[in-house]
Amino acid sequence: MFNQVEKIIFTGPVGAGKTTAIGSISEEPPVGTDVACTDESRLIKDKTTVAMDYSYITLEEGTRVHLYGTPGQQRFDFMWKILAKGGIGLVILINRDHPDPVAQMEFYLNSFDDFIAETGAVIGLTRSGMQDNVDVGELQARLFERQQIFPVFEVDARSSDDVKILVQALLAILSC
């Protein structure tokens, strides 16, 4: 069934760059629900998203495509499926500075497995330049073992073109 509210979901762990990625392609700065971090996330950044990020792009004829970012912390995972419901597809952002990026990727693939099966997913490997714990080939090797073929690109969440290529790949999958 074709959904009336068109939305693309961005997910991933704290600090992966979801808010930044949405902001780099949207027309307005994301409306966020950021609060000061009080848990271990404060070691990564000062503020974090607790409910969702939201912004949009407008197509030629006026249709809005909504861009939603899920909260990063796993204790807010009840929000994930609510946000994903009716979505066009999933953008998973993984921070290559994370101690185990491969496990992070698998966690989000598993958490959204039903949604991904119905739609599709792309994976962006973001970096902050501090550490380099994984490369694209390692994520692809794990996907190969899982018998899944998804695009995995290195992206700078601040770069509009990088995020656009990621979303374009998602659209290419969905169009097949």
Binding site: V155, I165, Q168, A169, I173, S175
Partner: peptide, 20 residues
């Protein structure tokens, strides 16, 4: 077997369609 890593290469939009 896997998607090419387009971020490391010169990007061409048609390649996304072919890869998909």
């Amino acid at each position: 077997k896997a998607w090419p890593n387009f971020s490391r290469t010169s990007f061409r939009p048609d390649h996304l369609k072919l890869a998909a």
